[in-house]
Design a protein around this nucleic acid. Sequence first.
DNA 1: TGAACGTGAACGAGCGCTCAATCAATTATT
DNA 2: AATAATTGATTGAGCGCTCGTTCACGTTCA
Lengths: 216, 216
Amino acid sequence: MAKGRKKKSPVTDPEVPTQIKNPELVQERRRHIIDATVTLFIAHGYHKTTTRMIAKAAGFSIGSLYEYVSSKEDLLYLVCKTIHEEVQKAVEEALADSSGDRELLAEVIRQYFKVCDNMADHILLMYQVTQFLPQKWKERVLVNELNITDIFITTLARMSGKKNFPVLETNILNLVGHNISVLGQMWAFRRWHLKKRFTIDEYIAIQTDFILGLIF
Amino acid sequence: MAKGRKKKSPVTDPEVPTQIKNPELVQERRRHIIDATVTLFIAHGYHKTTTRMIAKAAGFSIGSLYEYVSSKEDLLYLVCKTIHEEVQKAVEEALADSSGDRELLAEVIRQYFKVCDNMADHILLMYQVTQFLPQKWKERVLVNELNITDIFITTLARMSGKKNFPVLETNILNLVGHNISVLGQMWAFRRWHLKKRFTIDEYIAIQTDFILGLIF
DNA sequence: TGAACGTGAACGAGCGCTCAATCAATTATT
DNA sequence: AATAATTGATTGAGCGCTCGTTCACGTTCA
């Protein structure tokens, strides 16, 4: 093992070397800072957003900012993590809705695409900034991103063989999951161009036909 | 018109205020610099690649570098432009191949996906760095990006109604074009994950079924 | 009064970019 | 042929500046 790589220590969330004693205060303000940062990152991108801008937007001095956040990179990680949690939560809620008889794939797709439309800016941001994460965080975030694909895969697996649903082989299962998540996100990417031709509902309708075509 | 926006001057390629007289030399070295830069951008990203690194990789001093390129941002534009030209050329060549009787949509898709596989690093880079282009260049590059989608749309339009091909309405035409280009590019994005399950040929095979499903 | 919290001037590493100096090759002059 | 003058090309130290981060010093409140 040339150049002794660091012991594979368990990757935990960033800790802040703070003087502030009240842990609830820290949590609350951190959250506040993250929200302000998301807005700025969406507007200006990661590199053009300075820590001073963040502090100002959050209503702190830079000094105080560093009481709640240990570096800009850590803040980036927190942003990614938070957005991902939001998207994941929204997706899960949307899918929970489509239970019982409405547990139709079409409805699942519709809900997910709606989430992509609503959170388009956030999804775009995730794609843009992941590359700036230090390696250890990057792996985590990418794994999370794939989790959403996995949600579809498991949803599909659950449906497979039930009711009018054909039995799906694993490869198809995986690719359909992949395609759903990707085609949803591509609405976020190219919506300004696509909007010239389609409303989100039209886009959903055709893509749904598309995806169902592979299965049925 | 508040805040008098600059006259919409025609957007031309960046010019370099150089003292060097031999124009062929300039072109050749510029190309050389661009190639070196592409490699570095792929490896380290735009911001972590310094102009000094670029100069060194190209075998010049920073001083000389600026004889051939007027700024880092212009270099970024040249990189984007060059990559796009390469991709476009590769796509067009691939599609030219599939003429006459082999003019089957499946073949078109296969060729394009192969291009995406071969140029995966470049495609990824394009997605990552477009955001750092100054506005005037950004519009240009994005329009170019859409050109590739248009290639499919026109190809499809040409096929529409011919031989065994059904007549396609415009909306379908557009979305199929969009999906082909996007699903190809997503292989570049997620190939490391997808490769665990699929070879590129398997990916192509299933996605082709997928896309043809919508049409036939 | 002292513990908790807040501040912003100061720091310094690192960046893109410039330009006075230099070199190598060619042309002009003796 | 030898020397000088000119020119295109190259160089890299250093300028001006930005930005992430720190820390000595306030301020607040119990």
